[in-house]
């Protein structure tokens, strides 16, 4: 194992455990201003929205079609096991039908 990779993983693990356990300890001991608590409660949606926007901007229109398919399947079935493969399948099939430029 490379030392820099292990150090990076340890950094990720420390940050994650801080969120899990430190979050509980800090919130229970000191409490946080209601606005900050509300921000923490509302963070998941904006995080993934920001990530998906950046990723789709890089991926292009094909990604948008795939993402739309994922949303439809996820809404209909509520199953990640179906929606994720559906998105891959849509992107793969359209990629086969539309040869890439250049």
């Amino acid at each position: 194992m490379r030392a820099d990779v292990v150090l990076t993983i340890l950094g990720m693990a420390a940050a994650t455990y801080f969120c899990r356990a430190g979050g509980y300890a800090v919130l229970r001991t000191f409490g946080l201003p209601p606005f900050v608590q509300a921000m923490l409660r509302n963070l998941p949606g904006p995080i993934f929205a920001a990530y998906v926007t950046l990723a789709l901007a890089k991926y292009g229109p094909l990604g948008l079609v795939g993402a739309l398919g994922v949303v439809l399947v996820q809404r209909r079935t509520g199953s990640l096991a179906l929606s994720i493969p559906s998105g891959i399948l849509i992107v793969w099939l359209i990629g086969l039908l539309l040869p890439t430029e250049g």
Binding site: N42, G45, F48, Y59, V71, G78, L80
Partner: peptide
Amino acid sequence: FGGIAAFVSLLVPLWRGPRQDMAPWLLAG
């Protein structure tokens, strides 16, 4: 594309409706 698809899938159950989530999600993106 599965990486993006996973995050798109995770967004679906987080959606509480346009009143609560539309503006924050658009701003974030």
